[in-house]
Design a protein around this nucleic acid. Structure first.
Lengths: 169, 169
DNA sequence: ATTTTTGCCTAACAAACGTTAGGTAAATGG
DNA sequence: CCATTTACCTAACGTTTGTTAGGCAAAAAT
C-alpha cells in the first residue's frame, strides 16, 4: 500500500518537477525515471495535472492539519509561534521534493484547482496571523501589520528548500 | 532608442513570464500582446531563450552594480547593510515583472547560461556576506553563519514581488 | 529617383507534447 | 483450471511548440 506504483510515480514527478519545473518535465521524462513507457503511466493516473494537484494539495493538507493542532493547544502565543514554525520546518524538510513543488510550482495548477489551492494557503496564513493576534493581546509581540509579518516569516522559512540538504547542517 | 521594438518585446515577455511562467508563455502569446504575429518577433530577437536571458542578466547586472557601489563606499557596516537593502528594494520595485522573472524563472535558463547566472548570483550574495563580516569586526552584528543570514535576508526581501503593488502600501 | 533596410506578413516545418486505443503476457482469484 | 485483473507494451492521434523561408509594402538612405 505504501510503495504502490502510483506513489512511486508521485515521488519521481516531485523530483523532476523540482529540478526542471512542471512544464519542462514531460510524461516521457517521468516514465524514463521509472524505466517504463509514458503511456504506461496512465494505468495509474488520470493526467499530468493530477500529479501536480496531488503533490500540492497533500502538502497543503499536512501543513493545515499541523497549524490547526498547534492553534487548538493551550500554549501562550510565543510557544505557539515556536511550535508552528518547528512543525513547518519538520514537514518541509520531511519531503524536500514535494515541498519545493508546493512552494514553487503551484502557480501551474489548472485554473479551477488554483483558486481552491489559494484558499487553502490563505487559511494556513490566517493560522499564523491568529497566533500573532494572540501575541499582541498578551503584549508579547508587536506586529502592527500582521499580514506582512506572516508573509515575511513564511518567506524566510520556505527558503529552506533552497539550501537545506538532508545530510548537511 | 528607449522604446525600441525589442524593448517592447522584452516588457511584454516579462509580463507574461511573470504571470504564466516561461514555458507556459508561447511566442504566439507574446506576439498577441503586441498585436503582431509570432514569426515577426524574429526580426528583433534571436530566440525565446534570449528573452529570458536578457531579463535575468539585466537584473543581475543592475543588482551587482548597486552592491559594489555600496561596498566601495566608506560607511560603517550598519549603514552599508541599510543601503544595500534599500537599493535592492528600489531596483526590484522598479520593474516588478522583470524582477519576478529574475527571482522565479531563472531556473529555466539554458544550461550553459544557467551556470553563468548562478555565478553572478553568488557574487551578489558575497557582497552581502562581506557587509556582515565587516559588521562582525566592528562588533555591531552577530551572525555566526553568514551564508545563512544572507539567504534569510534576501529571501525576505525578494518576497516583495509577491505582495508589493505600485499603488498600494 | 533608386536602392536598401525595416517591420511585418502568410505558410509551413519538424519536433515534442499529453493522451488514447488496442493488445499481450504475467499475476491473481474463484 | 479457467476467468479476470493488473501492469506494461507499441503505435498512433491531434495539438502546440519554436523557428525558418520567402515575400511585400512602407520608410530611410544614398
Amino acid at each position: 500500500m505504501e510503495n504502490s506504483r502510483k506513489e512511486q510515480i508521485l515521488k519521481a514527478s516531485a523530483k523532476l518537477f523540482r529540478g526542471k519545473g512542471f512544464e519542462a518535465s514531460s510524461m516521457r521524462d517521468i516514465a524514463k525515471e521509472l524505466g517504463i513507457e509514458a503511456a504506461s503511466l496512465y494505468s495509474h493516473i488520470k493526467s499530468k495535472d493530477e500529479l501536480l494537484e496531488t503533490i500540492c494539495f497533500r502538502m497543503a493538507d499536512e501543513l493545515l492539519k499541523a497549524i490547526d493542532e498547534v492553534n487548538d493547544m493551550y500554549f501562550n502565543a510565543e510557544e505557539k509561534l515556536n511550535m508552528a514554525i518547528k512543525n513547518h520546518v519538520k514537514i518541509v524538510t520531511g519531503d524536500l521534493d514535494a515541498s519545493s513543488v508546493f512552494i514553487r510550482e503551484w502557480r501551474r495548477l489548472p485554473k479551477e484547482k488554483l483558486t481552491e489551492f489559494i484558499k487553502l494557503r490563505n487559511k494556513y496564513e490566517e493560522g499564523f496571523t491568529q497566533i500573532l493576534i494572540n501575541g499582541e493581546n498578551e503584549n508579547v509581540f508587536d506586529a502592527p501589520d500582521k499580514k506582512f509579518a506572516v508573509l515575511t516569516i513564511l518567506s524566510a522559512v520556505n527558503w529552506i528548500t533552497e539550501w537545506y540538504s538532508p545530510k548537511g547542517n
